[in-house]
Design a protein around this nucleic acid. Structure first.
Length: 627
DNA sequence: GTTAGGG
DNA sequence: CCCTAAC
């Protein structure tokens, strides 16, 4: 086997720590542990196995992300174990593992395969201060003979590698497997070995290499990557900064648990957030709040996206046919992005240690299915800020073809509120096309395994593609027959977005660059004139509720029209009143039936009177006469 | 978070 | 549709 000079190791799907934490119990005495100075190495399978071992051994293994592939914000898969036990003969598999080391590719997809049997001699040696040539010439003799101690063979991936030398890559795919075959039509270019290689620019590679972090000892001889170095190597995007900031904030909370080891540098935060991901996610989960008082689980997902550059098509819609189109609609740039992973809410799984991997998979699947029974919905984050207005165009949301997509994020959220009562049934919701096409996501089969804290890949390469539920759909309310119209309009604006390899999928560490102005971030919502049916619904609701209870009006008549806020309704009422008062010749836009305008005036007069009355009368239950 | 009102 | 004071 030829030794690679460079190692780029990544997991797709499950994100695993590059250098898993090694519990003492895994091997007993620390002295057994391989010194970290020279020939620590680990091949892809080893790495996977180590992670699996960590998972199985540690009570709650933490499969977090590595910073390597721009998916460092991955979450965890936590698997509880009651007893500590050596990994030997522990059957475990993470779905499928693909290790590709300089052309050789192995795949482990046998659920009953023992980890110890899938281990291969470590091909890579990376040590501090060693040049790439050194690394490719040295070869370790460690290997399968230490099959039971591979966890102790925690590799040390150095970050001080020459970032410009990318001869070899090692890819480890630990992915969730779909129950159905993936549409092959959506593919991303693969590496020579059929592995989806990191698309990061060479300069980022150094940072992709995480550094081993021994929990107890400082790794002498190993140069920890410095913040400065990273900084020098890579520019930071804004979103990245925000993410990092979040991360750093969260990490502060868990800092006490790690300070015993050593100081946590910013770089560490970036590179090994996965160790603490669980707490982080949990903390975040409790702080989330949705707009409409629905509790939602909201996880930052790590994605990488790139905006198509030269090959963007520019479709200028003929203004002759679209005289009324807004400027936003005219611009038809295509935003291309690649979603590498989602983060889904945390989930705990308890499973006997003598269970098979197959049963583990089953268990995870069941748990995931349970938690996601209500369906999934997608959250979109731009610059770390959630885009709540589904009616925005991508451009308006700050997702334009000219932007870096590093700060675009997606979250998977359980549809905790289920479908709105007036909307279609949840099942139907699944069948619907993505309700909001401003969220350019592929869809994935409903049996998609996704668990809390589990990070799965949604790259086209991945067997998974995300399903898009529509709890926050933009449907008009039932009172509004324009529903179909609106949807169709959306569909018309929708474009198939196929992930493409990005120039840089990294989500580099923090470092504030500049704070974008709001105008750059949140653009004006697209104008969506009220249809007559909407007006009717509004009038009816106001007739019943009055003109001062816009939230109630919203809930009553526009609960399903997510793009109509109660402020919108209030504004619309305002304009309706105005419209009703002016001469028909002066009115613009879609003509509102005079009958409706009359009702508007009547209701307005009535409720104005009520309000006036209410001010002189005792402030008792007023305005509820018609309820 | 809602409401109200100006921009 | 945005912004924001006021609640």
């Amino acid at each position: 086997m030829v030794l690679p000079k460079r190692l780029d190791c990544r997991f797709n799907g499950y994100q695993v720590p590059l250098v898993p934490h090694v519990p003492k119990s895994a091997k007993g005495k620390r002295s057994v542990r391989r010194k970290k100075t020279v020939e620590n190495r680990m091949c892809a399978i080893d790495l996977l196995a180590a992670v699996a071992g960590k998972l199985l051994l540690e009570g709650e293994g933490s499969l977090g992300s590595i910073k390597m592939t721009g998916v460092r914000n991955a979450c965890n898969l936590n698997v509880k174990r009651e007893h500590i036990k050596p990994l030997k003969n522990e059957p475990f598999d993470m779905g499928s593992c693909t290790a590709n080391t300089l052309g050789s590719q192995r795949e482990v997809s046998n659920d009953t395969k023992l980890l110890s049997t899938i281990m291969v001699p470590a091909p890579t040696i990376i040590k501090s201060g060693t040049s790439s040539r050194d690394m490719c010439t040295k070869r370790s003799s460690i290997s399968t003979k230490k099959s039971n101690s591979f966890i102790s063979e925690t590799a040390v991936y150095k970050s001080d590698l020459d970032p410009c030398s990318l001869e070899n890559k090692m890819n480890v795919d630990a992915k969730l497997l779909p129950l159905v075959s993936l549409d092959d039509s959506v593919k991303v270019p693969l590496g020579n070995n059929g592995i989806l290689h990191s698309r990061s620019s060479p300069k980022c590679w150094a940072e992709k290499l995480a550094v081993d972090r021994d929990d107890d000892e400082n790794s002498s001889g190993y140069t920890q990557p410095t913040f400065t170095t990273n900084k020098a190597l890579k520019p930071r995007g804004l979103g990245e900064h925000m993410i990092s900031k979040q991360l750093a904030t969260k990490l502060r909370k868990v800092a006490p648990t790690m300070t015993k080891d050593r100081e946590l540098s910013s770089t560490d935060v970036e590179m090994k957030p996965n160790f603490y991901r669980r707490k982080i996610c949990y903390a975040r989960q409790r702080t989330q709040r949705s707009l409409f008082k629905r509790r939602k689980f909201f996880k930052r997902c790590s994605i990488s996206a790139s905006v198509g550059g030269g090959n963007n098509r520019v479709n200028r819609v003929s203004s002759a046919n679209n005289g009324n189109m807004s400027s936003y609609e005219r611009e038809d740039f295509h935003v291309k992005l690649s979603i590498k992973s989602f983060k889904v809410p945390e989930l705990f799984i308890e499973i006997p240690e003598n269970s098979t991997v197959a049963s583990l998979k089953r268990t995870v699947m069941e748990a995931v299915t349970a938690i996601l029974e209500g369906g999934l919905c997608i959250g979109v984050l731009v610059q770390g800020k959630k885009v709540r207005d589904d009616s925005k165009t991508l451009l308006q949301a700050g997702i334009s073809h000219g932007d870096r997509m590093d700060d675009l994020g997606f979250t998977l959220e359980p549809n905790s509120s289920h479908a709105p009562t007036m909307l279609a049934s949840p099942e139907k919701c699944h069948l619907l096309p993505p309700c909001d096409f401003a969220e350019p996501l592929a869809r994935f089969p409903s049996m998609v395994p996704a668990s809390d804290g589990m990070n799965f890949d949604v790259c086209p390469k991945s067997p998974l593609t995300p399903i898009v539920n529509c709890p926050e759909s933009d449907h008009d309310s039932l009172h509004s027959p324009s529903y179909t119209l609106s949807l169709d309009k959306n569909i018309a604006n929708a474009r198939a977005l196929i992930a493409i390899p990005s120039m840089n999928v990294e989500t580099p560490p923090m470092t504030p660059v500049h704070k974008p102005r709001r105008s750059e971030l949140v653009q004006r919502r697209i104008r969506r004139p009220f249809s007559v049916s909407e007006v009717e619904a509004l009038v009816e609701a106001v007739e019943k509720l009055g003109s001062g209870r816009w939230r109630d009006v919203k809930i009553r008549a526009f609960d399903n029209a997510k793009h109509r806020t109660y402020v919108d309704l209030k504004d619309k009422w305002k304009t309706l009143v105005h419209t009703a008062r002016i001469a028909p010749q002066q009115r613009r836009g879609d003509p509102v039936p005079q009958e409706l305008l009359d009702r508007v005036l009547a209701a307005h007069a009535y409720w104005s009177q009520q309000q006036a009355k209410h001010q002189v009368d005792s402030p008792v239950a007023e305005g509820r006469l018609l309820l």
